[in-house]
């Protein structure tokens, strides 16, 4: 059972994001595998441990994304594919999906896993675009995955509850928080990851992009708030209710 994991490299969630001249300044940013993709990778490794096969990690971007692929090796990926593109733009879901689709043409993956959304764009579009281009089913927000020879059963978070899906293979599954707890790479894994070859491919997606990025902005400053004073907790509670009723009139 060969699996493919879509890996996106994103700024560490603790990273400070600075906007300079309408662009994101990359100075000082520490990059990492998007946290949901790490959960997807862990699930692929578990499928391999149970049913055999290989785990392939694929990432689209400039040469820097090879770091994310090395981390994927360290966790347990067998094969890594770097799809090198010019003018990578993290919001260009269609271009990224097209690059992946062309890179995996002819390969035989039964399960394709990805995080439910990238921690940069928060879009969650690439799995659907890839699925629609390839004619593969997409099941999102997985909390539990079971794969047999000819189908996958997925329990996922759905509108108003929890849904169980059955899907034919190949299937694209997006990982939700809580699907598993990603392992820490072993020292041996980290050492070995440095020597493994990364397969390199190129894709020209310049004609594929469907979005126009007009510019980034820092978040607007929230209007200054105030600390409610009072002699004791009860007095503060009373003052708060008064403020909610009379100042901002929300209750």
């Amino acid at each position: 059972m060969n699996t493919l994991v879509l890996i996106k490299q994103v700024p560490d969630t603790e990273a400070k994001i600075n906007v300079v001249g309408g662009k994101i300044s990359e100075a000082g940013i520490k990059w990492t595998i998007s946290p949901y993709d790490e959960i997807a990778l862990e699930e692929a490794i578990r499928i391999k441990e149970k049913s055999g096969g290989t785990v392939t990690a694929i990432a689209v971007g400039d040469d820097s994304v090879q770091n994310a692929l090395r981390s994927a090796f360290a966790m347990g990926a067998d094969i890594a594919i770097h799809v090198k593109v010019e003018n990578y733009q993290m919001l260009d879901s269609f271009g990224i999906a097209k690059a992946i689709a062309s890179a995996i043409e002819g390969a035989d993956y039964k399960v394709i896993l990805a995080g439910r959304q990238g921690a940069d764009s928060d879009n969650g579009q690439v799995p659907y675009i890839l699925g629609t281009l390839k004619g593969w089913p997409v099941v999102p927000f997985a909390k539990k995955v079971e794969v047999s020879a000819d189908k996958a059963t997925i329990v996922c978070e759905a509108e108003g509850g929890e849904a169980t899906y059955e899907a034919s293979l190949p299937v694209i599954i997006t990982a939700n928080a809580g699907l598993n707890e990603p392992r820490y790479p072993s020292l041996k894994g980290i050492m070995a990851s440095k020597k493994k070859p990364i397969e390199s491919k190129t894709a020209d997606i310049s004609a594929e992009t469907k979005i126009e990025v007009l510019g980034f902005e820092p978040p607007p400053a929230r209007p200054a708030g105030r600390i409610i004073d009072g002699a004791d907790a009860a007095e503060k509670a009373r003052a708060l209710v008064k403020a909610l009723r009379e100042e901002i009139k929300v209750i």
């Binding site: 921690a119 979005i211 990025v213």
Partner: peptide, 20 residues
């Protein structure tokens, strides 16, 4: 259509349009 949306967990916003 022009939209504004938060990115990077709300640490920045981006203004976007579609070309298609």
């Amino acid at each position: 259509v022009k939209i504004r949306k938060p990115v990077y967990s709300g640490k920045a916003f981006v203004n976007l349009k579609l070309k298609t």
